[in-house]
């Protein structure tokens, strides 16, 4: 992450140590996760020990110390969604993406998170994919939404490969 951007965020909060959580939230929302260099920079600029930053970033759920996937899937497992079958939706998400809650796949394609309540209980079970809400979802629909994303990802990857020089290598491999 660009150091200049981190400094900008810190300055926006007047380099105020008590606003540490707000600063980290802004970095997280800009960068999607909190890289080590960002935390070191915050620690230096605010004169807050790294141990406290570590304590905070591991205490609060929002913060992620590892990179997030290109597609973020949130499955609400609040009580209202739970009684309407959120566990089945979560199982489908896991089965289709191969990613467990709280984890991201090595290709950085999907990140799966559970949320304890999105406050859309009337629409439960709710799944949010890249910020888009899917309410009253059933397993089949869940699988469909995610399969489509996967297909789009594959198409995109192939497109990129075609455009890059590696396309040749791929062709060669295909011939063999």
């Amino acid at each position: 992450m660009d150091i200049g951007k981190i400094d900008q965020i810190i300055e926006k909060h007047d380099s105020e140590a008590s606003l540490l959580i707000q600063i980290l939230l802004d970095i997280q929302s800009t960068n999607n996760w909190l890289p080590k260099e960002a935390l070191t920079r915050v620690s230096e600029k605010l004169a807050v020990p790294m141990s406290r930053i570590q304590h905070i970033t591991t205490f609060y759920k929002t913060f992620s110390l590892t990179p997030k996937g290109r597609h973020e899937i949130h499955v609400c497992v609040g009580t209202a969604c739970h009684v309407r079958g959120a566990q089945d939706i979560l199982a489908t998400v896991e089965a289709v993406t191969g990613v467990k809650p709280g984890e991201t796949d090595p290709d950085l394609q999907f990140s799966v998170e559970t949320v304890s309540c999105l406050g859309c209980c009337a629409l439960g079970p709710v799944m949010v994919v890249d910020g888009e809400y899917h309410g009253n979802v059933v397993q089949a629909e869940t699988a469909e939404v995610l399969e489509k994303l996967k297909l789009a990802e594959t198409a995109e990857t192939l497109e990129k490969l075609k455009q890059s020089e590696t396309a040749e290598v791929v062709n060669l491999c295909a011939c063999q």
């Binding site: 497992v77 209202a80 309540c117 406050g119």
Partner: peptide, 12 residues
């Protein structure tokens, strides 16, 4: 900080 799962009065 309405954290109760299944409650969203405060948000509204």
């Amino acid at each position: 900080d309405e954290g109760d799962p299944g409650a969203y009065m405060d948000r509204s």
